[in-house]
Design a protein around this nucleic acid. Sequence first.
DNA 1: AATTATAAAAATGTAGATATTTTTAAATAA
DNA 2: TTATTTAAAAATATCTACATTTTTATAATT
Lengths: 227, 227
Amino acid sequence: MSKDTAAQSKANQATIAYRLLKQDIIKGIHQPGDKLLMSHLKESYDIGAGPMREALSQLVADRLVTAISQRGFRVAEMSLEELTDIYDARAHLEALITELAVERGDDSWEATVLGEAHKLSRVNEVNSPEEMLEVWDSRHKSFHNAIANGCSSVKLLELRMSLLDQAERYRQLWLRQTVFSQSALEGKRQEHSDLVDALLDRDKARAKQLMYEHILSPIPVIRNLLP
Amino acid sequence: MSKDTAAQSKANQATIAYRLLKQDIIKGIHQPGDKLLMSHLKESYDIGAGPMREALSQLVADRLVTAISQRGFRVAEMSLEELTDIYDARAHLEALITELAVERGDDSWEATVLGEAHKLSRVNEVNSPEEMLEVWDSRHKSFHNAIANGCSSVKLLELRMSLLDQAERYRQLWLRQTVFSQSALEGKRQEHSDLVDALLDRDKARAKQLMYEHILSPIPVIRNLLP
DNA sequence: AATTATAAAAATGTAGATATTTTTAAATAA
DNA sequence: TTATTTAAAAATATCTACATTTTTATAATT
């Protein structure tokens, strides 16, 4: 039995519900502002009220869901204000982490970053557009994770993940626009290439600045798509 | 009826359990590594298993508790490695937030910082040592919160709070040593005064550097007290 | 000693009971 | 009529008590 299958089978109902709900909120199956009715959730996920509550209050901590005592749960709203706030925080945090990664990253970090950059630049021979989207997004994330890991700070990486989760619904809006536009994709390719250059040159200030701008760049696109 | 009492009376069992448990873990009533037995918790807090699980899994997200599926919950261990990691992250994040506060803070921010600094410098006419501890800690937190609020980033402030919560058990070790030592207290007074000067001078680089060092300064004290 | 069987303890989940909020409809007042 | 209040009903959230599953401890067996 694979490790993954073992983990899945061991996971309790609350964990299963948490994963499914989170995915469905990110995918937009549950829209911002939607009421998350316990009776519906119980039925559609086939999970009891207890574990479901447990999952929901975790998502409240993740800021993907809001709760009012005795009045249940709703999918958290999306707004231009939140978009700006999340991306401002992400840009500053990611810039900080990049700076630390340049200071602290070793040879093996450099190697991994270079490897992930290469994989990302070679997203070509794919079948469907949907697969393209998935593969590019996955490799793009791996590339950025590889850079960030160089900072060697467990806690900063956890904070980074928390912001990424909160940004994910906004990112989804940007992703389609970017991956399906040859020129946008080429722009990203250039940004990534410049970034890698700065990292390998150990040019702290330049890497920090490039990362800051790279993170903020999707904002105009997302702003236009925001409902 | 006061707002607080109303909030208390409206809060559900899970929220009550979360608050009580968190306090008791920070106070050390539940020690690092302790098993959090559902039957004991149910009895001592007089709260059912469902809400108690909900509270526990929130504390897992807060990193104050660890969970193993089907094997229950334990108070998270404390370690020198975690101390170093948390304080490294805190110092960098707080320095970043301070820098932004100097950039973004307005007149009313300056006024609040100055006011809180004044209150903190006047913790004197108190009755018991225990009260002294409580009052100083409370005002010290308010002072630092006032500075941080200047950054105007909801998300960065949330990340800051998350790290503060994780640092709280370590901070408690340092607090007694500092508040009950006249020389240590004088040292802090000086650091705070320098910090305020840099803030009001809008000296970004200096404020950032002072804050970075201020956050890291408790580490040697805590290291010696760590069990 | 190592392995297996058994019993006890504990975690987790379910179903139904209870409490709260929301909706609906009727009654009252402007 | 229109708006407001009130009371009852329905919908919903939450909790409790119990049932089930899993783990852990103990004893028995090889």
